[in-house]
Design a protein around this nucleic acid. Structure first.
Lengths: 215, 215, 215, 215
DNA sequence: TATGAATGAGCTTTCATTCAT
DNA sequence: GATGAATGAAAGCTCATTCAT
């Protein structure tokens, strides 16, 4: 089993879902991602999953519970590991430069990110409207992840590889650029021609060196 | 009348809307922005606007037409001027450096952006789901704006103030960072403490110099 | 002015309708005839007539009043004359045979009937549902017309040109066949090829001689 | 189970309708027939059927689908058999004369026709407005039935019992008179006194011998 | 456990009618 | 008289949720 499959499995299989439940979740992700949560009907999800409408409500008391059951584990189990996973390597000086670290991080997670994109899309769509999700997101992403990211940043700062901006701002700017690229690439303009490797390289270069010409 | 009020006026008043129509639009923006398009009911909008529900449909044949009538002019009349407006000054070398240009651009538009934020929020929420809006957005933003932005970028490149990355990528990265800041600041984490001037300065600094330490 | 125009005029102009009123009536006839009374909206009629919706209600208190104002004069002023008109000629023995009478009657009224068809269609569509119309229809058509038709029939019977069936039945059968032809021809199957003269001849022949082969 | 009940059953039961569905159909027939399709509301039908309004739309996606589901089987399963049913007997010379054939046909179907009258009424009311129904009607009634009726007519013509008019015209005239009688009897003037047997006899006599006096 | 018919509240939309201009 | 914006009741229809099987 590949690393990605393992991770997907971690997302949803842990609680030993029945076959029907898995089908429901897959159908729900597809539908929510395509039309948005509010515009998706449980009957459509049921049809797509090949189950009766009642079956959905046997497993999830309400439609919102279904949404939360999809997005919540993403936040608690997936995003944190995604970001934090290789930090020990970084701290162990496996990557001499930030560029190398960013490149390795983005590259070896890109496929996974693409595959998770539907769920990520749902997450960002619904966070503004679902207080439940927003709270979770703040707790997990802001308080947990940002804090651990800080350590890495401080590490690089101590090595003299990053400027002295506050780690929180550095984190924000870095994440913004990675997500901004993915959002442009896969959500806003998926139909344009993209040279992904090149564009990632540019993004990394930009993150590190900005747009100003040095001479 | 301030410049901003003028612009808001341009957005919606141009066609000489009746009083009720203005109330409907204001109520619709507020509701769509708070709950999302699909989760907003026309009856709620009507109530908030203080008009009969039928009145909405006298002016907008469908609920979607109401949405489009709000977002479309934003795209055609607001975003383009916002970005393009002062370009002649730039080209006329009014700003010696890109930093100055960015700072002036962001600062003198921030208030306006904040005030337009509900509509901008609606726009980004719905673009993934409304092909109509997506098409308009692609046409206007990508094809028009990107092309004019290119000229400014090339101007600065020729002056040796910007690196030689393709202008499209430079545009994408710059816009991403500005919107990324605004999105973090006003949509995701509006409740956190923000030192706006400082954060904008950091964003500009980041855009120009990246995160790498020069020495 | 042709005889038909005169008759149309009698139908609607008598009360010195304004220009707008005439347009409303023409539009209403067209719409009711195409879609049926209940499925026609006053706004559609107004648009087709080129007047404001309020204008309709200035002249006709309700939508039903508009319907009645169209169908009622047809029944009182048009149908009766149509049938009765030349009876004095008949009684004066202008037509030696019933065939001649039928032929003359049908032929010199066919164009008019065709032109009135929309109103006739409305009339028959709505009589089953509008008690107001049904009553008028019974009074006028059954009690008035049938009675006068009886005289003609009796006249021919006395001349030995018609069988001794009760005049009411003879009237019903004759009218049924003429309307049945027109209904098949113009309502049910207007798109089929019809040799009208021949078909009318057959109808007359059938009315007189039936289908049975003699000798 | 009588022949008629069997036929009604064939009309609607075939697809194993639930109890509620049957109630909906019965209520819809009653309502459509009384007020016409466009003037009938689904809420009224639901109330009359004793079901929730949503139940109607669970079984019929639209109101029009409900209409079609009532009228369509009438046309395909009921009218064709009604007309064609005993033709083999006719062709087998069970009826020596056309009169006998007509009499037998009308008489042994009259009850059924009366019971089906609400549906027949709906059918004729809506055919002019529903292209869907009109097409079906043309296909079934014109192309199928007329063609089979032609054979019988030709049979009688060969036997010298019918005049040499084209079979299509003979069919039209015969059907017109039968339906014309039923329409006058049950739709236009149901409240008048009718001696049904006598009137049918007159209709048959008229069809065969016309109105002209032979001597 | 799974089903899917049934529900009814609530949705978007239509429409005859009113009324200030 | 004529207008057309405004109305609100009622239309057709959707949908999350329930429950008997």
């Amino acid at each position: 089993m590949t690393e990605e499959e393992l991770m997907l499995q971690q997302l949803f299989d842990e609680d030993k879902l029945t076959d029907k439940q898995k089908k429901i979740i897959v159908a729900a992700i597809e539908t929510f991602s395509e039309k948005g949560y509010a515009a998706s009907s449980t009957s459509e999800i049921a049809k797509k999953a090949g189950v009766a409408e009642g079956t959905i409500f046997r497993h999830y008391k309400t439609k919102k519970e279904l949404l939360v059951s999809i997005v919540a584990p993403l936040m608690s189990k997936f995003i944190a590991p995604l970001v934090v996973k290789d930090f020990h390597k970084v701290l162990d000086r496996e990557y001499e430069t930030v560029e190398e670290f960013l490149r390795a991080t983005i590259e070896n997670r890109r496929d996974l990110l693409i595959r998770m994109l539907p769920v990520v899309k749902i997450m960002f769509q619904e966070i503004p409207f679902q207080p439940e999700l927003r709270e979770q997101f703040l707790e997990l992403v802001v308080e947990n992840i940002f804090n651990s990211v800080e350590k890495v940043i401080i590490g690089y700062q101590e090595k003299g590889l990053l400027i002295d901006m506050p780690p929180k701002s550095i984190a924000r700017l870095t994440i913004t650029n990675i997500l901004g690229y993915l959002f442009s690439r896969y959500v806003l303009f998926p139909h344009l021609d993209w040279d992904d490797d090149l564009e990632i390289e540019r993004t990394i270069h930009f993150i590190m060196n900005g747009l100003g010409k040095k001479d």
